[in-house]
Simulated scan of single mutants.
Amino acid sequence: MATIEILGVPHAYELTAPTSYPHTLVFVHGWLNSRGYWQPVISRLSGDFQCLSYDLRGFGQSQPNKYTDFIHQGVSFELSSIQRSDFANPFESLYTPAAYAQDLTALLEQLNITSAWLVGHSLGGTIALWGTAQKPERIRGVICINSGGGIYLKEAFEQFRLAGQRFLQIRPRWLSQVPLIDLLFSRASVVRPLERYWARQRIVDFINADPEAALGTLLDSTTEDEINRLPQLVAQLKQPIYFIAGAQDKVMEPKYVRHLASFHPLFQYSGNNVIEIPGCGHLAMLEKPDAVADHIRSIVFKHSEIKVGD
């Protein structure tokens, strides 16, 4: 693990060795997760591609200094802004996907990564889309995993935000010592129970997430403005955008993945930018790492003049 300061916050990241393939794969994790969840997939891809994974600001080991004044692009933000329900400007808060995309593009610049494919899980998929819009010259394409949406259902989102806020209130440090608590985390949002190692990691990431970042991302990524902005965002991107869905994902159902994918011109012409993985829930990279890695490899090489073995 290495660290690098981005806009005043130390970010933890891992970068594998370069390969003959000229474009780096950059992996963006989702809410209450961390970069480690990508390792099963990266271990299967790093022979062909250089891979970058990092912890989003406030998650994993990218913890903000509480005494640091956060500044994005010369604009100071107040943490109290997370209490707002809607944002006319996606950069008005520290915790919108657009703000996290600024972190991402700054990371690419500091690591001198000039050409990349972005691979984002859940919230990370939205961040990847925003990052592509902000720095299109650096991004070759996007692969969103368990990520979709674009339909704002008021009652459903209000219930989701309320449940999420209650969930975040129950995070004592001793939670990890509760007998069999890892069995609960091994079953959440997946089709088959995860290995207990990953269940323990989910507990660690849940407990250690910065409170302001955990709540801020929950609220700021689910406003009506933010949800309605997603189809417009996908429609304007020129790069190939692919969506990998878990066929049994109850958090981001495939119908919502297909809905968002349909706004990209690639879908209108060929209809093949959505891939469903059978027997898979919301954590495809842990549940089906072989399938996810194979699909990523196939997509990336499909859009490359360099073939395996060259």
Rank of each mutant, 00 (worst) to 15 (best):
E224I: 04
L219H: 08
T222Y: 08
L218D: 08
A209S: 07
Q232V: 11
L230E: 07
F206P: 00
Y197K: 15
G216K: 00
L215R: 05
M252P: 00
G246A: 11
M252L: 11
V234R: 02
L194V: 05
P231A: 02
A245C: 04
A235H: 09
L260G: 01
P193Q: 05
I227V: 10
L266A: 12
F206G: 06
V257H: 00
Q232D: 14
L260C: 02
I227L: 06
E226S: 06
L260V: 00
A247Q: 06
P231N: 03
N228L: 08
K238M: 13
V204S: 15
P211T: 07
R196D: 13
I227P: 06
I241T: 11
E195L: 12
H259R: 05
D205F: 00
L215M: 08
H259D: 13
V204D: 15
D225S: 14
L266N: 12
D249H: 02
F267A: 15
L233E: 09
D225M: 12
L266M: 08
E253V: 13
R196M: 11
E224M: 11
Q236N: 12
A245F: 12
L233D: 03
P240I: 11
Q232K: 11
Q248C: 11
Q236T: 08
A209E: 14
D220T: 12
L233N: 02
L260Y: 01
D220C: 15
G246S: 07
F267D: 15
K238H: 13
K255I: 13
R200C: 13
F206E: 12
V204N: 15
G246P: 07
K255P: 02
P265E: 15
G216H: 04
Q236C: 05
V251A: 08
I203R: 02
N208I: 04
E195G: 11
F243M: 10
A214S: 09
M252K: 01
H259G: 10
I203K: 02
E253I: 12
R196C: 11
D210H: 05
D249V: 07
F263V: 01
D205G: 03
A199K: 02
E226N: 11
L266C: 10
V234P: 04
A235V: 05
Y242R: 05
V234Y: 03
A261I: 09
F267H: 14
A199P: 00
L219G: 07
E224L: 03
P193R: 01
V234T: 01
F267S: 14
D249Y: 02
D225A: 15
P193C: 00
K238F: 07
L219Q: 13
T223H: 02
W198M: 14
A235N: 09
L219D: 07
K250N: 11
I203V: 05
P254R: 08
V251L: 05
L219E: 09
